[in-house]
Amino acid sequence: MIILDIKNLTLEIESNGVLVKALDKVSLTIQENEIRALVGESGSGKSLIVRAISGALPPQWIVTADRLTWRGQNLLSMTRAQRQAIMRRDIAVIFQDPLASLDPSATLKDQLVESIPQEFIPKGWPWQRRKARLRIAQQIMRKVGIKDVHAAINKYPHELSLDICQKFMIAMALVSQPTLLIADDPTRGMETNTKQQILTLLAQLNKTRNLSILFVSHDLIAISAMAHSMTVLYCGQSVESGKMKAMRRRPLHPYTKALMDSAPSFSPDLIPKSPLVAMDGTIPTLQHLPIGCRLGPRCPRAAKECVQVPEERSINEHKYRCHYPMHVESV
């Protein structure tokens, strides 16, 4: 069953005095129990999607969508209170910058205890309830791999190292036992051991607790280790989505292909220090978006038709937006 359904999400923002479509008809769905990766270049709009789902956008930005629903309920038309209730109990978000999203003036304990839903605390005297809360808080902190919980729990965010803050953000998100976890680059800059620990924890929660995950990252190795399916974003447009395996083996969109080629670890035969396959150029600024397919100027397969925006097409579960897709014959 689809729990989160996004169809043609468009986000218009004012940047340097002009109104630009930072997201242009983005579609994305998340099934129950699914781990979906959202990948794309820096500046492609991944964090904007996360913010649009959570409703954390400045009021002057214009959001439109054919569908933006949570279990069939329209997130855009419901009241603020209803939306907040969903964000508190069903969907948890780990934002990209841990320090900016933690309260600098409260200890980890205070912040975490605050996020524990009331119904998790057994009835009892206030001091019993306080103790129960503390126990839950410590438990979850241990679970995400924070080593010295007793020392860390009474500290303020700025007193702790970045990777403890990152782990703590994950603890904060998991403490309400959400149905869907949206994690924006949660393992960025983590060393391999810690990263593997976090990925294992998330994969395990997915299996044992049916946690669905939207995993935003450009760490392709981490993504292919855990995601079932993937949506690729380029320049504010969703260009391809489908099952992880199929997309790795036979990407249809030239950009997905370039993405896959860029991880040296995926090509074991690569000669050390040889140049990596890389697409020329760089993602354009929002002020100078090319017309038609936004990949056009960088795309090795581009041809005349590409000045028209490609419509979304699909082959079975596999969706793509490209006039001249690859591997189509073999799908």
Partner: peptide, 30 residues
């Protein structure tokens, strides 16, 4: 913090700069 395609470009850029200018590069990476 670099995305894949720019990361490949940066790696290539650094490899080229090293070959051309003899730049030495010490980097910390996970």
């Amino acid at each position: 913090a670099l995305d894949p395609s720019v990361r490949s470009q940066t790696v290539n850029l650094l490899l080229t700069l090293q070959a051309e200018l003899g730049l030495a590069f010490i980097f910390i990476s996970h």
